[in-house]
Design a protein around this nucleic acid. Structure first.
Length: 548
RNA sequence: GGGCCUGUGGCUCAGCCAGGUCAGAGCGGCUGGCUCUUAACCAGCACGCCGUGGGUUCAAAUCCCACCAGGCCCGCCA
């Protein structure tokens, strides 16, 4: 098989099927549409910025990181076709704390409505609550080798990065208020400015209502009259004051802030979840009509839901952090989840990690030609997906593969000591692998973590034994104790003998043994396993059961 | 009130976004192999009018329309 021919073939295929864009993934499609649009708009293409918001008010979950990962994917696709591009990760740390996430200390309730960048870090390791939350996301991005430029929202206001846009928006607040009413039926901003000052007295945001804009002084006048936040009435402190809108004395409402960001930072692409679709619609209009900046190209995506169909929510407590995923799966498996497709809702849980782990291996098989894919379009797409997962720098050789569930299953019954080696030895004896390298050992560790947490073996219950089964088990224990050095095969036969002498179907006795030793109805070859975990320990577990 | 997603063998789902060996996978079930009887592995079998009805096309699970059934988001919180 020679490289040149292969390339020629690919050329032909592409010519024959013009519809395949770039590497055939949705990222390529987005990048192409985006560039086409920019060309029509006649903007400079010397640097195409893409943006992702980083929530800072709750515990970030896989969905939050997905936004950034996908934006990065688009950046990669842009670079792939020769455009300079960067990802801005913008932390919404000027936002107020609306609700204390489940599991965090009670005292945070005293900080409701305070900007999260001003709240102490309950974990004590970062400069603020907001910094801590954002760091969970950026840490996740780092682990995924996603490159980005971090921008703190609070800092953006402090430095006046958005000042020009804030001023323009406030100067046109009447028009904006009317438009919001027209577009969404929300009349609030006909009466109130789309700006939330931080109350100079109580330090809270959202509770102070900005009722007038002083054009010359670039100030809003406000009174702290309270607000309803997350369906809870929050009392104001009654303070009246003014805020300099060119400083960090407040922030724009979401219905106008994106527009300011896009214009100020020259953002050309931003994806968004359907939950903020309305805000994006308004912001697009503001960007265009008020700020004279054509809004970025968008892609809308569905939420990640949990298995019960609930939105994975920062405050609901069903959070599924990127770190949690990475406890059980490789970075590649998480990137696969994000890059595979963007359309459609996905009900997600850690139970899905094995599937994504194995699917990555399957992609790799196709990429390296171990598995043939006849359909050229599919081949290209599959390879493209694999390449994006590897940040367009795929490995030179395939990794060692073995079914994740198989690894997990073996790990779940492996002795605690030398567990990784045990699993690898078993896999070799099954001829599932020939050898193991460090990357594979890591995979074993991940699968072992998964097994510990989710494998059914964890549901160890009391085992009900029939009288004859008790006798049989007692005989087995007796044998093991007398001959602790017995061979695996011998023990295996003793179990069959015990079944026969007591007229128990072997299947039943084995099931009982498995339930006692591993907690499952099935398991590895028992003789071998008993030797592996140590005859003494096996005998102890068995007799312990008999004593009950 | 507005918007979106999903509906594929017993179960869980992939495929749909750029129509054509796509009717698939895993689990479960069944049969057989691995020197008998447990795991794993291997070979094979069964099970589907791809929600319903129209339309576009040489060709539709895939595109369009309508409808039915689930679910999600937004509705003056952000």
């Amino acid at each position: 098989m020679n490289q040149e021919n292969e390339n020629e073939n690919e050329e032909e295929i592409v010519n024959a099927n013009e519809k395949i864009i770039g590497r055939g993934t949705w990222l390529d499609k987005v990048a192409e549409d985006l560039v086409e649009r920019e060309k029509k708009l006649g903007r400079s293409l010397s640097l195409i910025r893409v943006e992702s918001g980083l929530g800072a008010s709750g515990i970030p979950h896989v969905g939050s990181i997905g936004d950034a990962v996908r934006a990065y994917g688009v950046r990669q696709a842009l670079k792939d076709v020769g455009y300079n591009s960067e990802l801005i990760a913008y932390s919404d740390d000027m936002d107020g704390l609306r609700k204390v996430p489940v599991g965090l200390p009670e005292w945070l309730n005293d900080y409701i409505a305070h900007p999260v960048s001003k709240i102490p870090d309950p974990f004590g390791c970062h400069s603020s609550y907001g910094a801590h939350m954002s760091s969970i996301l950026t840490d996740g991005l780092d682990k995924l080798s996603v490159e980005y430029k971090f921008q703190s929202g609070a800092e953006a206001y402090r430095k006046g990065l958005l000042a020009n846009q804030v001023v323009k928006i406030l100067e046109n607040s009447r028009l904006i208020g009317e438009k919001i009413s027209e577009m969404l039926g929300q009349t609030k901003f006909e009466d109130v400015l789309p700006y939330y000052p931080v109350c100079g007295s109580c330090g809270r945001i959202y509770v102070a209502e900005a009722y007038r804009y002083e054009r010359e002084e670039k100030k809003v006048l406000y009174r702290c009259r309270g607000a309803e936040i997350a369906h809870k009435k929050i009392e104001g402190c009654g303070h009246e004051g003014e805020a300099d809108v060119t400083k960090d004395q407040g922030k724009l409402s979401w219905k106008s802030e994106f527009a300011a960001r896009w214009a100020a930072l020259d953002i050309r692409f931003e994806a968004y979840g359907k939950d903020i679709a309305d805000s994006v619609k308004v912001n697009d209009w503001i960007a265009e009509a008020v700020l004279n900046y054509p809004p970025p190209f968008h892609v809308k995506y569905e939420m990640f839901l949990d298995k019960s169909g609930k939105k994975i929510s920062k405050s609901l407590g069903n959070v599924f952090t990127p770190q949690a995923w990475l406890t059980y799966g490789t970075p590649q498996s998480l990137l696969l989840l994000m890059y595979k497709r963007i359309a459609g809702t996905r009900n997600l849980s850690v139970e899905d990690i094995p599937t994504y782990m194995d699917e990555y291996d399957a992609l790799e098989d196709v990429y390296f030609g171990k598995v043939k894919e006849e359909n050229p379009a599919k081949l290209r797409k599959t390879k493209g997906l694999y390449e994006y997962i590897n940040h367009l720098n795929p490995p030179k050789a395939p990794s060692i593969h073995a079914s994740y569930r198989l690894i997990a299953q073996i790990a779940s019954v492996a002795p605690k000591e030398g567990r990784t080696d045990y699993v690898i030895e078993r896999l070799k004896s099954y001829r599932a692998i020939k050898e193991a390298d460090e990357a594979f050992r890591e995979k074993v560790r991940l699968a072992a973590n998964w097994a510990d947490e989710f494998s059914k073996t964890t549901e160890k219950t009391k085992v009900e034994l029939t009288p004859v089964e008790r006798i049989a088990v007692a005989q087995i224990v007796d044998f093991i104790r007398k001959t602790p050095k017995a061979e695996a095969e011998t023990i295996q036969n003793v179990i069959f003998e015990a079944a026969k002498t007591n007229s128990i179907p072997p299947t039943d006795l084995f099931r009982a043994m498995y339930r006692i030793l591993i907690g499952t109805n099935r398991g590895p070859r028992l003789g071998t396993y008993i030797v592996d975990i140590g005859t003494e320990r096996a005998a102890d577990s068995l007799s312990e059961q008999l004593d009950q």
